[in-house]
């Protein structure tokens, strides 16, 4: 199932944290950085495409 924006943002945060963690390895960093850049682009695209669904309720509140 495709991830929503919040989940993708969480993934990005986790990815960024890896660069500051003890697990950081220079050999893996290039690949990770590429993946984070792709994820950031995806998030920006998703953000730009998000639309709200605004509906006016049919109920008549004057009665």
């Amino acid at each position: 199932m495709a991830k929503n924006i919040s989940e993708k943002i969480d993934d990005l945060k986790t990815g960024v944290e890896w660069f500051y963690s003890e697990e950081f390895k220079l050999e893996d960093a290039g690949e990770k950085y590429k993946a984070m850049t792709e994820l950031a682009k995806e998030i920006e695209k998703d953000l730009a495409e998000l639309k709200n669904d605004i509906k006016v309720i049919e109920e008549d509140f004057s009665k």
């Binding site: 924006i5 998000l50 669904d53 605004i54 509906k55 006016v56 509140f61 004057s62």
Partner: peptide, 17 residues
């Protein structure tokens, strides 16, 4: 402002005076 700032929300509007 709502549409500019965020999306993906369901907004149910009760029209009243």
């Amino acid at each position: 402002i709502l549409n500019e700032r965020w999306g993906g929300l369901t907004v149910l509007t009760a029209h009243t005076q």
